[in-house]
């Protein structure tokens, strides 16, 4: 499990970047000696979660985030293979430091240990130690709020956004999933097919739950009707395959063969479970009357 993408909440522009009451910037961060880690980590984790619990009992601490410790109040936990089990798998926020004690990234996660572990596998050189703030009773809002408060604290203290949290930095997140590529029916027009094209179409529509034969690529449909169909499928969150019938190199002859296969003279054509659903008009009308959602269940 990777960190929940913490980029989404925008840091308010109103945060004061100049700070007179500036905290002693990161000077508290003395990395503990490796040999003494396990015990102290364990303690600091216990500590942070127990603080969170006791704080909730205080009448003035009504919100979850007010129970969250500041970054500056937390001890850092060194990361090494030996203390793998010492991080909490609870939800919370965490700050990752490099070997110079500089904050690289503030993340939030539903499983801090797993997120930190995935960072350490990806960029071990940037993951020297970590501070963890457990968020009790975590919701998306309380986690985001906790993350914001840490970001604000760090920005107030240093005037900088942690490098890993800067827009466009993908070191700490999985890049967003790429759109699927269009499927190709043949290895290329100059390769002799051993199976008739009709059979390839048949196999394709039967082996895939939803297939859209469109003009152009799914990322850039070359015809308004195909574009509309792609838009509908995307909006329904349908996991579909697409085939570009205009691709003369890899789908050579597909248009004519598909027309006769489906006995349907136009494109786009959408198949579900091996059956022709229809073209743009039918998809649109099924989308509008709600039948489409049932079909793709």
């Amino acid at each position: 499990m990777a960190a929940i993408n913490a980029i989404t909440p925008k840091i308010p522009l109103s945060i004061r970047l100049t700070t007179s009451k500036s905290l002693p910037t990161l000077s508290f961060l003395s990395l503990p000696n490796t040999s003494s880690f396990t015990a102290s980590n364990f303690l600091s984790l216990k500590h942070s979660s127990s603080i969170a619990t006791t704080a909730k009992l205080k009448p003035r601490s009504l919100s979850i985030v007010s129970a969250l410790k500041k970054i500056s109040e937390l001890d850092s936990i060194a990361l090494s293979p030996e203390n793998d089990d010492s991080l909490t798998s609870d939800s919370g926020v965490y700050a990752v430091y490099n070997s110079d004690g500089e904050l690289e990234f503030i993340g939030l996660s539903r499983n801090v240990a797993a997120s930190v572990d995935s960072h350490r596998k990806k960029v071990p050189e940037l993951c020297s130690s970590v501070k963890v703030g457990v968020v009790d009773d975590p919701t998306k809002e309380s986690l985001t709020q906790a993350w914001k408060s840490w970001m604000e604290e760090h920005i107030a203290a240093t005037g900088k956004i942690p490098p890993g949290n800067e827009t466009g930095n993908t070191t700490w997140f999985r890049p967003p999933p790429k759109k699927k590529p269009d499927l190709r029916l043949t290895p290329g027009r100059h390769v002799q097919l051993t199976v008739p094209l009709e059979q390839l179409i048949d196999r394709l529509v039967k082996e895939n739950k939803v297939v859209a034969f469109i003009k152009g690529s799914r990322n850039a449909p070359a015809c308004g009707f195909s574009q509309k169909v792609v838009g509908i499928l995307e909006s329904q969150g349908v996991d579909y395959e697409s085939v570009d019938v205009l691709d003369e190199e890899y789908n050579n002859g597909l248009r004519e063969t598909l027309k006769s296969y489906s006995n349907w003279p136009t494109f786009p054509q959408v198949f579900a479970k091996g059956e022709l659903v229809g073209g743009c008009d039918i998809l649109t009308s099924m989308y509008e009357n709600g039948e489409l959602a049932d079909l793709f269940k």
Binding site: W264, P265, G278, G279, D281, S285
Partner: peptide
């Protein structure tokens, strides 16, 4: 069904298509 209705129309217009 919608598919059948469209097919009826397409069949009638196959020469034009």
């Amino acid at each position: 069904t919608l598919v059948k209705r469209h097919r009826m129309v397409y069949d009638l217009l196959s020469d034009e298509l």
